[in-house]
Nucleic acid binder design. Structure first.
Lengths: 196, 196
DNA sequence: ACCACTTACATACGTGGCGTATGTCTAAGA
DNA sequence: TCTTAGACATACGCCACGTATGTAAGTGGT
């Protein structure tokens, strides 16, 4: 047992993040009682305040974790495609699909921005925007994409994707709406391709 | 004095909506104390609960009011343009600019969706989406816009616009960022035009 | 190996804000 | 004029957050 101490601490943090993530993702940030979900994790609010300062601090940590996961997933998908443009389109569609997951939708697109402000402006920049920007830069270098401001394009696409996801998720017919959204989205992206 | 009664009631409602709108727009929904802003309007929470049921109900009323105003503004702008396509582009840019106003941004794009869910899915449909859809339909009929799902396009554009606005608003250099965003946005829209 | 000090939590308390139940007063109808 | 319903105020309870305080365990210096 060289360092059981730090392990315990890390475990406590992880438990709090997991409990908060679950609570925020299901009943929402405002609907989550700190006593409840810390107790459910076998701890108290004391631990939470010690590690994260306040409720917002925990939300921030949860968001960081989810963002990191999303970035990895996006990167995997884009790099698995046969060519760059295809990878880019796949990445965008995957982003929409991720935004359909209730936990991501709630925490990353609803409560997160409402409580903490625009997340993508954080010092530790939003990984998803960065991933998108990287793809766009490569496409521009390849001459496949029109000359457009990289970060701007990334943000516009990001916005279109997340709203598309909200539209789908709240629709009466999610599957049908999903097809409509993705089809329109492909047309939108196609418009950014250099004309042959 | 034919109907002083109904006038008083309408006035009370208006006062509550105005007070709530101001509070929500400045300190946010969660940061607004009902006792505070009703008191500031010369009333109490009793009036609020009577007219709007709860805090959410007032937010809903506030959002309806703002949405109506935005719809009028958008319609004015699009109909003032020399041609349809121009009107459409103007409308979209105006939408971004409106989304830059702190009150609209906070209430319509942050707290509103967080507290009430996706507003645009409400029975009384979001006026801005409807306005955009109308413009797109006309452009398609004119053969100026590519064949794309109308509502889908409206929502994608809506999402891109609002995120662009957030990007600008939280930027260090709002003016420069605004130019970047609008330029990129024009390119995006141009991609939806039928190829000549 | 002992002691001072810090760290990692738990417990206890105060405060503020929401919702509801209840009260009161005024206007409208019979 | 009397009754009734609507418009609003007042009062109360509860829950949740944040903070202040307590405690036990670990760590570094001598």
């Amino acid at each position: 047992m060289r360092k059981p101490r730090e392990e315990m601490i890390a475990e406590t943090r992880a438990k709090l993040i997991a409990a908060g993530r679950h609570a925020f993702g299901t009943v929402g940030y405002a609907g989550s009682s700190m006593d409840d979900f810390t107790g459910h994790a076998g701890l108290t609010r004391g631990a939470l305040y010690h590690h994260f300062g306040d409720k917002k601090g925990l939300l921030q940590a949860v968001i960081r974790e989810i963002d990191a996961e999303m970035t990895v997933r996006l990167h995997r998908i884009s790099s698995a495609a046969p060519n760059r443009w295809q990878g880019f389109v796949d990445e965008c569609v995957a982003y929409i699909e991720m935004a359909l997951e209730p936990e991501i939708q709630r925490i990353m697109f609803r409560d997160g921005p409402a409580v903490l402000g625009d997340i993508s402006q954080w010092p530790t920049n939003n990984g998803c925007i960065a991933a998108l920007s990287g793809s766009i830069d490569q496409l521009k270098a390849d001459g496949v994409m029109a000359d457009i401001d990289t970060e701007g394009a990334a943000r516009l696409i990001n916005g279109a994707s997340s709203h598309a996801a909200l539209w789908i998720a709240n629709s009466d017919d999610p599957e049908g709406t999903s097809k409509r959204a993705v089809r329109g989205f492909r047309i939108l992206l196609e418009g950014l391709r250099t004309r042959s």
